[in-house]
Design a protein around this nucleic acid. Sequence first.
DNA 1: CATACTTCTTGATTTTTGTCAAGTGATGGA
DNA 2: TCCATCACTTGACAAAAATCAAGAAGTATG
Lengths: 197, 197
Amino acid sequence: MTKEDAIAAMRNFMAECVPFSKGEWDRVQPLHEVKILEKNELLLRQGEICTTLAFVVSGALCQFRTEDVDPYAYDFSFEADYAVDFASFAGQKPSTIGIRALRTSVLVCISKKNLDAAYKVSPAFQEFGRLMAERALVYDDDRVKSLLYDTPEERYLNLMERDPELLQEIPLYSIASYLGIRPESLSRVRANLNKKK
Amino acid sequence: MTKEDAIAAMRNFMAECVPFSKGEWDRVQPLHEVKILEKNELLLRQGEICTTLAFVVSGALCQFRTEDVDPYAYDFSFEADYAVDFASFAGQKPSTIGIRALRTSVLVCISKKNLDAAYKVSPAFQEFGRLMAERALVYDDDRVKSLLYDTPEERYLNLMERDPELLQEIPLYSIASYLGIRPESLSRVRANLNKKK
DNA sequence: CATACTTCTTGATTTTTGTCAAGTGATGGA
DNA sequence: TCCATCACTTGACAAAAATCAAGAAGTATG
């Protein structure tokens, strides 16, 4: 995949969300930068300020904490997701998580400074930003509800239904930490579900 | 408080977030509607589609689930917060929570249709919407991290630090459900903290 | 091929949290 | 004033999840 392909993929995704003119895109596009991460390479080191917002063209990334003995998966980013510690990015303060590529990943990145500039010169991009924030908000809202109300078994089943390919790709101990339980507990949840069938 | 006062309060809040012209405000303002809720009155019934986004000028609201024996507090909205089930509002599908006034509350409301119209006619309002979504996103992000990583005691202490007045106003059984634990467990957490001192 | 490592599972045990039941103090009517 | 209700606490017990330890299966590596 060339850099041009990556930019085109991002443009297509944006076009699906909001209508924008060629002129607008031409003002916004140069503010972006294509970045390729190899497997296990870091996009963000925990504790550093998150300076870049990364649109995932292809590949997969994991947001995680290093304080724990095992790296503790907090979230995953796949194709057409954004990878970022938003609190760190928006407030330009130290991040509480790191971000690592789970496999070779192609990203279209924009710095905080350039993003602010893009919002200034393009109303369509402003709207796109709002829609992305709203999408992330609905996702987080759902997750809070799930953590408050659902049992580990329900959370696991919901994830399987919503994102079955995730389970193919991500080790179960990472899934467990995403669900907020220990790997051994997830193992037992799965054993139980097998027995039920 | 008059309706004009409520509108003015909302305008002031918006002005603190983004610069906007008088013309822009004049286009956006008529799309809003002031609403006063008495204590215990509902803004949204669980299961209904959330048709309105409510800016809280004064008062306090609670988002909750009715499925449980005790109403289960999911979140609270105070002055300068927005009260909404965003997934229901954005997608115009049945809400999974209800919203109730904890005391008499003055709201400035806007319907989904009018909000979409406001975004169309005002770039400043578009930016304001993005900033509000981002603010909510950071809040939710924090909450997910807290539910994943912190013990009930840590969650309680964090809440006390972040929002001490909330504990004055909200019964402990609601605090407990917000923290994702049972009232009895919160009671024990508090008893433990008292012993430690 | 042998070895080390990773991932996952299982069993035994401890810790945490939930559940059930009872009781206290405060508050608000009738 | 009395009674009912509400918010909170406490105790005894049950259930859920974490922890600790060991081992199986698969994969990578010398």
